[in-house]
């Protein structure tokens, strides 16, 4: 979100008291510093507290590498699937009128308001040893819970809304006239999507993908329930952080955490860039 200073602050015209402004600005900076910047800095400081060598050693551990690989694998499956779903859902909801549209939108939002632990729990109930299909999958030699598929399912669940809820309001605001015009000029469905829709939504789509990716790589609660915490097999980076921390191996825990903090910083930077691009293209369109 982009903030702009109002050209003229009405409460701050000559004669108005200036102290509220300074007090409030000071308070805001203090809160942001104490609650947001300090923890971020602390992760890095703790990670390097025992020196560069120990940091490298912590990262360069076999189990850390396995965790990195698994985290990347999960994101590589989850993000494309949720992107396809997000585009389909947004196309359906923002471009057509049908009964049950509001209910569908709410259903898409639902995973956001459910505790991640519940997200894990429901997959245990369906695919766990005592679940509906759990024993069948296990007999086929394809266990889901305490295995990679379960981690992917739980992560899919918690990240379902990200792309869709970014695109729905965007596409609703853009309206469908350009797409109708393309069809009227003889374009086929795929051509219309590729040449008209996709260029129009690309920044919003990218924004949703960035946020979806951050959550997919960083999800802890839901994954924690279904993973089983088997080192080298079902341990994602966030779970690895937990294990190291609980073993009182703080330096290593913070070293691995610093990788995730780096991911968060990268996410924020990319997000700001996309917002900036989006604002620019919007400006161009409304000149």
């Amino acid at each position: 979100m982009h903030t702009q200073t109002l050209a003229l602050d009405r409460l701050d015209q000559p004669g108005a008291r200036q102290w509220p402004r300074y007090v409030l600005t000071g308070l805001a900076i203090f809160i942001i510093g104490l609650f947001l910047l300090l923890p971020l800095a602390a992760v890095l400081i703790e990670a390097f507290s025992e020196g560069w060598d120990l940091y490298v050693q912590a990262i360069n551990d076999r189990y850390t590498w396995e965790a990195i690989k698994l985290t990347l694998l999960v994101a590589a499956v989850v993000v494309p699937l949720n992107t396809v779903f997000g585009i389909a859902a947004a196309w359906m909801i923002a471009r057509f009128q049908f009964t049950g549209r509001g209910a569908l939108t709410t259903l898409i939002d639902l995973p956001f308001s459910i505790s991640p632990v519940i997200a894990g729990l429901i997959f245990v109930l369906v695919f766990g040893a005592h679940g509906w299909f759990g024993s069948w999958f296990a007999e086929q030699g394809f266990p889901i819970i305490f295995a990679v598929p379960g981690i992917i399912l739980a992560t899919l669940f918690v990240t379902v809304p990200f792309v869709a809820r970014e695109l729905i309001p965007l596409m609703q605001e853009q309206g469908s006239e350009e797409e109708e015009a393309a069809i009227a000029l003889g374009a086929g469905s795929w051509t219309m999507f590729r040449k008209i829709t996709l260029p129009k939504i690309k920044w919003g789509l990218l924004y949703g993908i960035i946020l979806c990716n951050a959550r997919a790589m960083g999800e802890f609660g839901a994954v924690s329930v279904v993973s089983g915490h088997i080192r080298g097999q079902t341990n994602t980076l966030p779970l690895h952080v937990e294990i190291l921390y609980n073993e009182y191996n703080f330096t290593a825990a913070f070293a691995v955490a610093s990788l995730l903090a780096g991911l968060a910083i990268l996410t924020l930077v990319l997000k700001s860039l996309v917002e900036w691009q989006q604002a620019r293209s919007l400006e161009r369109a409304t000149q």
């Binding site: 903030t3 910047l37 946020l211 960083g218 999800e219 952080v241 995730l260 996410t267 997000k271």
Partner: peptide, 20 residues
């Protein structure tokens, strides 16, 4: 400052947990 407001959305909760 504006960008960093979203840090809690972007930072994995486990990381937030151990650092806090």
């Amino acid at each position: 400052f504006d960008a960093v407001i979203d840090l809690p959305f972007a930072l994995p909760t486990a990381v937030a947990g151990i650092v806090l």
